[in-house]
Design a protein around this nucleic acid. Sequence first.
DNA 1: GACGGGTGCATTGTTAACAATCATCGTTTA
DNA 2: TAAACGATGATTGTTAACAATGCACCCGTC
Lengths: 254, 254
Amino acid sequence: MQTNAGVKRVPSVHTGGSMNVMLAAGALRDDGLIQEESAIAQALRDAILERRLGPGSRLPEEQLAEIFASSRGRIRRVLLALAREHIVVIQPSRGAFVASPDAAEARAVLAARRMIEVAVMERPCQPLTEDAIAVLRAVTEEERRAHAAHDSVAMIRWSGRFHLELALALGNAVIAGIVSELSLRTSLIIAIYERQNAMCCLKADHDLLLGTVCEQAWAEAGRLMSRHLLEIEQNLDFSSPAPPASSLSLILKR
Amino acid sequence: MQTNAGVKRVPSVHTGGSMNVMLAAGALRDDGLIQEESAIAQALRDAILERRLGPGSRLPEEQLAEIFASSRGRIRRVLLALAREHIVVIQPSRGAFVASPDAAEARAVLAARRMIEVAVMERPCQPLTEDAIAVLRAVTEEERRAHAAHDSVAMIRWSGRFHLELALALGNAVIAGIVSELSLRTSLIIAIYERQNAMCCLKADHDLLLGTVCEQAWAEAGRLMSRHLLEIEQNLDFSSPAPPASSLSLILKR
DNA sequence: GACGGGTGCATTGTTAACAATCATCGTTTA
DNA sequence: TAAACGATGATTGTTAACAATGCACCCGTC
């Protein structure tokens, strides 16, 4: 599924360079899965990311097989892969469900993110290239556009994307893979514990961050990143155990 | 995340203590795998960690199924899980092999480790408990013992274990999982690129580190950790592409 | 009305047979 | 001699049928 509808348009002149990085993002490789499986996995990740599939949702093998015009065996492999990413839970003899992390796990994930992403800011292990800056600018531009259009799905996606590109630009592919996984888990967590009045995770934080990054003010960038992630955490409400218990309605195919 | 809640670890006693510490290690849960599969996966990880299975080794499904008295289907699941940990590579229609990361991947893994583990030292997100210190002391004691006995297998294992316990003590379960995976990848890397005259990865670095940790001298601990990991990296020789090409001799079952 | 047991259905788990693919090696030919 | 070709065997990939499990529903009894 590199037909990722929205991902194509990077509004910059240097289509060539951006394109490359664009591809890399979706394709941060799904080791051990063949193309078709990888596509299904990505479709499920997208559905979770965009909250079409809520935490606790049932994921029946046969139904998924039909939806994706695939076989049960293949779905099974995909579900195992997603279980290893901690966004799906497999209960033996019961089936697979979208994970619904508890408060402790939520805190652990966020703490890990803070630790890692702040470290990436403070001590980048790669020089910042012009290309990388261009990509980051393009992403924040997309974020702004999504925000203006009140397109919350796009907002979620580009927001995650910003963190990923940052990890890729200042860290490396291994770190980016880790950040990517933690990002996805985070968005599951937000789906469960978000405060009602939540400010939808963006108030130009990313712009600010990008500014300091461009100036190579690493210490300040680290501080901003820390604050940014702390804010996300502080906008969670762990008091309501609230398992939203979504139905098995699958609006997966597009 | 009560992952390690049930496992009480008391360091003191020789066999008993060590055993307990042993258990906790593998048990950093293998999501999506049933017990039997998890055991097989751990056996393979151990074999790789201890370099009984060298990089590039072939891993035929049927043979593994026989060795572990299991079925091909189950082996298949295990291999997929290990592929997602990047310690096994699955080549479609060709089979599974122990991964042999190239220089670029090796550097990325080590850089990621340095970034993350240094961050854990510098900014622990948990107060250091007495229990944790006891466990860490026990591990270094085991390391010393293994070193004295020239038991390189035990040395490798306890060395990795030290890093894991550190991440668990000062970080959390999520970070420990990440460190655990990176550790395993590192030991694959060392198996490939280690300099002949390598000093076998331990010259009391861990003792020193533990000392500063106990004193809660975080900045110094971070510096030591950084140096420690850099030393590992500097003892690698990427010039010889040397794929040791090990046979498929499987001394897996114990 | 609540509890316990039992039946049937829906779903997952497992297996075995078959199909497809790749490597090996011997043979042929330029 | 070396390259190309082709058959053979070994290994992986896929499927479909069957077994096992858990769940919901119904019924009877207390």
